[in-house]
Design a protein around this nucleic acid. Structure first.
Length: 371
RNA sequence: UGGGGUAUCGCCAAGCGGUAAGGCACGGGACUUUGACUCCCGCAUUCGUAGGUUCAAAUCCUGCUACCCCAG
């Protein structure tokens, strides 16, 4: 009997995933990952409730369960990077790294040590196969597809993974949970940084990054307010600026973080040109498959998501080593350095990179590159 | 010191005798395994202040206060 270790968060999706695998006759082991240690106001660990849910669910399903601690790995491989990026004025996405480094590396290794053939998670993604090569496909529920967060995986990692709920809709998953009387069937979907959870983001950052207040200025250099530290803002941000009523009365948005001058550059109106770009340069490009969709320097068509849940955007892409250049058909709003650009062809997730800069104008000689 | 003007929510701003629009900001919620965006709801028993006229005033009258402008 094939053994599969399921990464269980205490949520509906991973609980149903474990249950389905058990039904299919696998030797299922549930494992709860603890990657962040934090006490809430009452002094109890915020992960305790989730661990309790995991235990309840596993007992109900009738599978053994364990908890494993990856706090150190998370700290070193994910959180350190997270803070470094903020210090550079960028806006990192820790969850894509968490998946590559923790869930599909540290945890995968752990699963193998438990004698498993495969690991499983409750991600809403599907797997495909092309001549024996694993493909990452979007989840069947277009509203819940989480392939964006898994683009950094390699096909070798993927080959070891199964996603039992990826072919279902969220509604179907909940219905199954309900049907089997899982105690978490009505549990609210979790959001926020994985393992760290929902919290006041500024308060959270304050504990790790020094505050350095400075000026908010327009592009023309007019001072329109004070900011409390560039790290607390991201491109395209509207809320939290606190400078309403000035200028022409429209909303203000962050259009640039000038680290050298410690100035937050803002502009008025959601349609301000500075919020939009068409060209994106990304680094740290990774392909899921061993064979990229095109050769270096050879432009190709695909779609991209510049943020989670964004509809596919038609782009022309070309890459050089781990540098990726994209030209979008449509204007893209607030493409932010540090955020990921994830590439697709149809339902296949190809991989992606981390945005370094976005521009209204070409940063490459596209005319000569394009056919 | 004369003359004129303006004072309505944190900011901007409707209102012109009939019982306080709207925008921005802010707060709450929804959405969401990053950060954002977006959407929904809330947000002045009160109109610088003290009186007066009137059935009824932010809206009319008077005093006071503050600020602005022009004269000096």
């Amino acid at each position: 009997m094939e053994r599969i270790v399921v990464g269980m968060s205490g949520g509906v999706d991973s609980s149903v995933a474990a249950m389905l695998l058990k039904q299919q006759g696998y030797d299922v082991i549930g494992v709860f990952m603890k990657n962040w240690d934090e006490q809430d106001d009452n002094g109890t660990c915020t992960a305790t409730g989730d661990w309790n849910d995991v235990q309840e669910v596993c007992q109900l399903i009738g599978i053994p369960y364990y908890a494993v601690n990856f706090e150190k790995e998370y700290q070193e491989r994910v959180f350190a990077y997270f803070l470094e990026e903020y210090k550079k004025g960028r806006t990192p996405n820790p969850d894509v790294l968490c998946n590559r480094e923790i869930k599909f590396k540290a945890f995968l290794d752990f699963a193998m040590q438990l004698g498993a053939e495969k690991m499983a998670t409750g991600h809403f993604v599907q797997k495909g196969d092309a001549d024996g090569h694993s493909l990452l496909l979007k989840g069947a529920d277009p509203n819940k597809d989480q392939s964006y967060f898994l683009y950094m995986l390699k096909e070798k990692q993927l080959a070891r993974a199964v996603f039992p709920v990826g072919g279902m809709t969220k509604a179907q998953v909940r219905a199954l949970a309900e049907e089997f009387g899982l105690p978490v069937s009505q549990k609210k979907d979790s959001t926020g940084i994985c393992f760290i959870g929902e919290r006041n983001f500024r308060q959270f950052l304050q504990g790790y990054l020094p505050l350095q207040a400075g000026e908010m200025q327009t592009q023309e250099g007019q001072v329109v307010g004070q900011h409390m530290g560039l790290a607390y803002y991201t491109l395209g941000q509207r809320k939290g600026l606190g400078i309403g009523g000035s200028g022409d009365g429209r909303s203000w948005f962050v259009i640039e973080k000038d680290l050298k001058r410690n100035v937050l550059v803002v502009a008025q109106g959601e349609d301000h040109p500075a919020l939009y770009s068409r060209y994106v340069r990304a680094s740290q490009l990774t392909w899921i498959g061993e064979t990229p969709p095109a050769r270096e320097g050879e432009p190709f068509q695909c779609t991209a998501k510049f943020r989670y849940r964004q509809p596919d955007q038609q782009v022309t892409a070309v890459y050089n080593g781990d540098e990726l250049y994209l030209r979008s058909e449509d204007w893209q709003r607030a493409v932010t350095p540090g955020q990921s650009a994830v590439l697709y062809q149809g339902d296949i997730c190809l991989g992606g990179g981390i945005a370094e800069e976005a521009s209204r104008e070409a940063m490459l000689d596209w005319v000569s590159i394009l056919p």
